[in-house]
Amino acid sequence: MTRKINVLKHRLVPRHVVLSREDAKRVLSRMGVKKTELPWMFSTDPVAEALGAQPGDVVMIIRESPTAGRSVSYRLVISG
């Protein structure tokens, strides 16, 4: 009767990609911000758990947006 659900495929969940250390660094320097100045997401977030993201990782989020078509945003994974 029950089965495991894949949250990553849900309509409301945009595409998340865990960035490598180098990619994260490049993104941050391009935006001129520190890691902690990004929006956060908890490592206990269902999506972070599904991706295996660890605290300190930067996650790239690709959202479908009616104004921009597709827009890219980032979140820092924090422990909690």
């Binding site: 949250v7 849900h10 409301l12 969940v13 997401m41 908890f42 977030d45 269902p46 999506v47 989020i61």
Partner: peptide, 8 residues
Amino acid sequence: LGIEAARA
């Protein structure tokens, strides 16, 4: 579904 889904 997580924080991004909540935002949406």
